[in-house]
Design a protein around this nucleic acid. Structure first.
Lengths: 205, 205
DNA sequence: TGTATTAGAGTACAAATGTTTCTATGGTAA
DNA sequence: TTACCATAGAAACATTTGTACTCTAATACA
């Protein structure tokens, strides 16, 4: 019984569990035992049943007995993250409170016209958008809804895509960095293609 | 055929679709036709078959023919967010590329010992953590694994919780802000309770 | 009113699938 | 080695389940 992970599963159980997780993420439904059998390179359903039973006993999965494709990952119930309170970042403030709320990211993620971009460089550093951050952008339907000061990703033909503050003044488009070291870019409206406006920032450390 | 929604579904189809969505959210797998039949108050599988077919034709669902419980909500494919490329934030750089990857937030979200905190104040502004941001923290198992320079949330008894850089020097704990306007806090190790270390930052604009 | 269309009930059938049982194999500890 | 145990292969079985078909009832439309 050699375990390579820090959990209490055997290699075979680990492999199966990981595969199930992937399958269910991709297809939104449970695989059948015979599918798992095939995926694990086995020729009999019995070993899969055994592994499933172990996974269940150890609290990783559950299913409805006798019903086809009714696996559940008991682990994956975490739809949100508990918000434990506030922290001070300037003086000391609040202590940990009870869970008042849940951080719900899904509302942003579930929108259809959302895409992500990786940030290169530091021109938006003063807007607290750093090199390596992921910015979640929402596609722009009509340019006229853009308000001055919005952070947008814009494609300047022949130059490339950039992340900047959007301003419109006197019929001209200004793309301004949030870093004084960079000069504003002035453009005619017809030369710019706005790809999206900023809805969220994600940074993994 | 009166439709109450703004989509092109009949009432019956709408009801079924909503029920399926709920079921799949709750159980992480597809219901069977006979379950839907029962849930819709019907006594024959035929009407469900018909409604499913319509839902499929209109692009709401799909399934694997002949296979049990293999429904998929084509709408809900957004588990990740397509990463369309990079943006410059400093000079203009890259154009939109094809989707190279998917922004996967779930790996962080699915960890069990993750909690979130709301940031108050600007003492971490130079670390690009701004007022109002959500910081995702991972519980700290052993304090000794903490490395200098890690951003932690620490509870200083009698004062409160704060988000700071962690340093240990000469047996003393130093909690330093990422804003020169704030003085480092020097503490004895036994006076500090470390609640978590930073794993991600989430900002919704 | 009569006809066409649609939805639902009922039934039957074949395929998919979970479950059980038995046997063989390989490794491990006494 | 020998006994034991976990795992894999194999085969058979019962249930679940998707699918197809017919028939009836309700509804819409001319």
């Amino acid at each position: 019984m050699v375990t390579t992970e820090d959990n209490n599963l055997t290699d075979a159980q680990n492999e199966l569990y990981a595969w199930i997780k992937n399958y269910m993420r991709d297809f939104q439904h449970s695989p059948s035992i015979r599918q798992m059998m095939q995926a694990m390179g086995l020729k009999s359903p019995a070993p899969i049943q055994s592994r499933l039973k172990h996974l269940q006993e150890k609290g990783y999965i559950s299913w409805q007995e006798g019903k086809a494709r009714t696996l559940q990952l008991v682990d994956d119930l975490v739809e949100g993250i508990p918000i434990m309170g506030s922290v001070a970042a300037g003086g000391l403030v609040e202590t940990f409170s009870d869970v008042n709320d849940n951080l719900d990211i899904s509302d942003v993620l579930k929108k259809k016209n959302i895409f992500a971009l990786t940030v290169n460089g530091d021109s938006m550093i003063d807007a607290c958008i750093a090199d390596g951050d992921m910015v979640l952008m929402e596609s722009i339907n009509d340019v006229y809804s853009l308000r001055n000061g919005t952070i947008v990703s814009a494609l300047v033909p022949g130059l490339g895509t950039t992340l900047k503050y959007y301003f419109k003044r006197n019929g001209k488009i200004f793309l301004e960095a949030a870093n004084p070291a960079y000069q504003p870019i002035e453009l005619d409206p017809e030369l710019v293609i706005f790809q999206g406006k900023l809805v969220a920032v994600w940074r993994k450390v």
